[in-house]
């Protein structure tokens, strides 16, 4: 079966939150393709379409989150975190800055892991804690999710603090304030913004190439 047709069917099952049928389609794909090929040709394009669908108002956040979790679980099953085929990458981490609204971070985390990446999950963190952990883990790409405007503005101070680390990590931001003000990510000194989880995957892929 043509993989792009399988991808369409897979997306439909994800949006319907039909875990069993999604798994069945992945299994069929794996009879002809390797796990990494299936991730790149089946899962990542689906997550991209779902992500942009959310931004355009065609898909709901519940579908993005629960569909992303299904993908993450499937990829974990067929490509465990320690598998050598996982994408070779520099250390990455994700956190929510000074807030307990964790859903956006959880969605991006799932989407990145379902796309074959591994990253540290710092949960919610204060600015100082985030800088310390980033330094200790020698994180090269730091993803920061925010919901509140004040947290988005705090990214500026985070950026300044990160400048003192060596190597200086790349800083990627996302969350509602950055969607409602499209210039805000530049104002606070981020290196990039992800307007949805799939965009975060694109951004991370690009930054990994730049760092290499």
């Amino acid at each position: 079966m043509n993989i792009s047709l399988q991808a369409e069917a897979f997306e439909e099952k994800l949006l319907a939150l039909d875990r069993l049928s999604a798994r069945q389609i992945l299994e069929e794909t794996l009879t002809e393709y390797s796990v990494l090929q299936a991730v790149e040709a089946l899962i990542v394009p689906c997550l991209e379409r779902i992500g942009s669908g959310w931004e355009q108002g065609r898909v709901a956040l519940s579908q993005v989150y629960l569909g992303g979790r299904i993908c993450e679980e499937l990829v974990d099953e067929f490509l465990p975190p320690a598998a050598p085929q996982r994408i070779d990458q520099p250390p990455m981490a994700i956190a929510v800055l000074e807030d307990y609204h964790l859903l956006g971070k959880r969605i991006v985390y799932s989407c990145l892991r379902a796309s074959g990446f591994e990253l540290l999950d710092y949960g919610h963190a204060s600015l100082e804690d985030l800088v310390l952990r980033t330094s200790k883990d020698r994180v090269r790409i730091l993803l920061v999710s925010v919901l509140m405007l004040r947290s988005a503005l705090r990214v500026k101070a985070l950026r300044e603090a990160l400048e003192h680390l060596s190597p200086v990590p790349r800083l990627v931001v996302g969350g509602a304030p950055f969607r409602f003000d499209r210039n805000l990510w530049q104002e606070v000194g981020a290196d990039a913004v992800g307007m949805n989880a799939a965009e975060a995957v694109e951004v991370v892929s690009r930054l990994i190439k730049e760092i290499a």
Binding site: L66, H101, L103
Partner: peptide
């Protein structure tokens, strides 16, 4: 419930 239990847990309960 987003504030009562966190959004991710709430969506799981809802669905």
């Amino acid at each position: 419930p987003v504030m009562q239990m966190g959004f991710d847990h709430y969506l799981q309960v809802m669905y």
